[in-house]
Design a protein around this nucleic acid. Structure first.
Lengths: 142, 142
DNA sequence: GAAAAAAGGTTGACGGCGTCAACCTTTTGC
DNA sequence: GCAAAAGGTTGACGCCGTCAACCTTTTTTC
């Protein structure tokens, strides 16, 4: 099943990752959010009072990497740091309304770009592809 | 269809991109190849006598970015630069046997990790998922 | 209950990465 | 032939995540 230098399946996987992921290291998801920043913001949004290290763990970064990401998100006004009342060492990272807002915008943008791709497929396939995407992601998580 | 801060579909897409793409900016595909380097190497392998800028165009980099990628690939011994006989300005980038080799290794690794994910799905879905992946990639290209 | 160990977080130095602008060389167009 | 254009490289730059060292606040241990 090889037509070029690598398998069609590998190539497809990588192209998908490239298309929907960061195009290049400094690829932007949206105006001023890099891919890891966006991922971090999603994590923060879904984990109430999320400690800094949690973010690093979720994304596969070290704790100092996590600090840096939170720094940038805070500087841009998408999150705030709040000292935990239970443990004074812990910084609870909380999403701001502005953060929620950009999450929505970006979500819409992703939907849009997937829709544009799906429009190029035979119409009856669309629901199956959507289902497959969520199924694949679920399998990855477990 | 929202359970958390973003749509399940968007989340799935991004997770797939993250899983199969560069985990973080400096994510490695394999030993000493970053994601953009791997992509570039695939491009070079499939385009005989590939000019430097072609690589930039294929990946969405500037021409100086392309130069830098080729620099790194050359330093690692995966490609060589050859002056074009037709146009002395052009550098034909050519993959080395060592380059072909790592491409194969990485290909195998990708197949492996996809297989591992698919193993967690109901068995009868596997071929459909494989088909969908290549279909989706094809739709993205066109 | 105090000292030691551990855990959360931050910071400085560092190296990797892609861009921009300036530059050199070679080709093309008139 | 000479100016403009095109391929490619380079230096300065800023962004990014890591490592190691560090500070502060728990938790453990005796």
């Amino acid at each position: 099943m090889k037509h070029g230098s690598i398998t069609a399946l590998t190539r497809a996987l990588i192209e998908i990752a490239w298309f929907f992921g960061p195009k290049g290291a400094s690829g932007r998801c949206c105006e001023d959010l890099a891919m890891p920043e966006f991922l971090a913001l999603v994590t923060i949004a879904d984990l109430p009072d999320c400690p800094v290290q949690e973010i690093g763990a979720a994304l596969g970064f070290t704790k100092s990497g996590a600090t840096r990401i939170v720094d940038r998100l805070e500087r841009k006004g998408y999150v705030t740091r709040v000292k935990s009342p239970d443990d004074a060492r812990v910084c609870c990272v909380v999403i701001t309304p502005r953060g929620r807002n950009i999450l929505e915008t970006t979500d819409a943008r992703y939907q849009e770009s997937l829709k544009a791709v799906l429009a190029r497929l035979p119409g009856e396939e669309t629901p199956a592809v959507r289902k497959m995407i969520t199924m694949l992601a679920r399998a990855m998580r477990s």
